[in-house]
Design a protein around this nucleic acid. Sequence first.
RNA 1: UGGGAGGUCGUCUAACGGUAGGACGGCGGACUCUGGAUCCGCUGGUGGAGGUUCGAGUCCUCCCCUCCCAGCCA
Length: 443
Amino acid sequence: MASIVAATPWSRIRTITKLELAPPIFLQSSVYYCKRRRFSVAASLSTNTNKVDGQVRVRFAPSPTGNLHVGGARTALFNYLFARSKGGKFVLRIEDTDLERSTKESEEAVLQDLSWLGLDWDEGPGVGGDYGPYRQSERNSLYKQYADKLLESGHVYRCFCSNEELEKMKEIAKLKQLPPVYTGKWATATDAEVQKELERGTPYTYRFRVPKGGSLKISDLIRGEVSWNLDTLGDFVIMRSNGQPVYNFCVTVDDATMAISHVIRAEEHLPNTLRQALIYKALGFSMPYFAHVSLILAPDRSKLSKRHGATSVGQFREMGYLPQAMVNYLALLGWGDGTENEFFTLKQLVEKFTIERVNKSGAIFDSTKLRWMNGQHLRAIPSNELTKLIGERWKSTGILTESKGPFVDEAIQLLKDGIDLVPDSDKALSNLLSYPLRDTLTR
RNA sequence: UGGGAGGUCGUCUAACGGUAGGACGGCGGACUCUGGAUCCGCUGGUGGAGGUUCGAGUCCUCCCCUCCCAGCCA
């Protein structure tokens, strides 16, 4: 589409039609094209076209379908550090459009885990804000409004295909070893045909009409330029037949209407960016900056999952890990400040963090190093705080009858060098108290 | 398979095109009754093949390997 080609210097997303790609004229014009691109890139770097007085606004958007995964925690942490280091806002949004798997308990647990880590949010559940509601399930009218706008503009159409028809399309695609691309049966339907199905009461979804030909390009803050050919993508669903909106549509409307300036999220969402960018354009929203962070991996280099052992923040909390150790370790799993220092407080991380130093390749979660790092942080705790932490534990678990006093103080000082986790102190104290002192003393 | 993203010691992470370092782990030693902490030493790497260059982990080409996505999940 020629109109899309006419990108302004301030545009970061560029769609290239096939005409421009045609050789050999393309070769001749490549220098000119590169100059234009360089100019446009420079312009976009120097001119922040994003909203709210150019303020940095980032978001962490967990789905409340389970506990906070360490991968999610790391994503939240990078967003938090980015916002705080730029003097921006850290927004929390609950993505609960999956009504069957989302629970209130999960949401509460996620919020507690974020708080425990020290990642306080500026807007979202519990604190409010100017861009609410901050749960997707409470924003349905907004999605409906924008979906209808897309229907009116022709970017979206009603698709009456049954599940059976869609399955057949998928099987055919599979035989051809291609991804299941919608063949566009209802994309060209007449108003009469549509009206007929509506009168019949046939269920339908809303499908986004993907432009034919060309490509789309983003400039990822971590990975550089990423592009996709549009012919690899078929028309995709944005609203289900039950009226529930689909994730890619929700997240785009949410990020745009919440004035999010930087979308910093896990790499698994990189393929989604193509769809979302098309929705941004169709709705006339300004495109945010994107940064796709690598995944945290298991030792076999697959995505870290439950079958690999502990994976949720809550589990590590129960095992006795300190929040400051978790935060320090997770930050270094994919980021470094360029020096050989590895010990940071959350405050120091805010001061040091830059998105440019986030690594592209996935990192394997190393429980052994986390334990060592917890020991370092444990021994860095001031004596009075450590006494309070461990003394209260000894009392609440019944090992001792008092949580403070000279005995507790001395015992902690004596034992702290021999433990890495707070619960290790239980056994350490028991060992100390069971020492055969009388048999050892000389008379 | 299609699309996309990646590849530096076992793991994490450094290294403006200019001596491949640090941390964890492992092994050994000092301290110590033992362990732990602390300190010291050792081990160990640029996926492969070409190319550009005085010089390549870094730039280019090809190959190999790994990961993510391909739900009316998120």
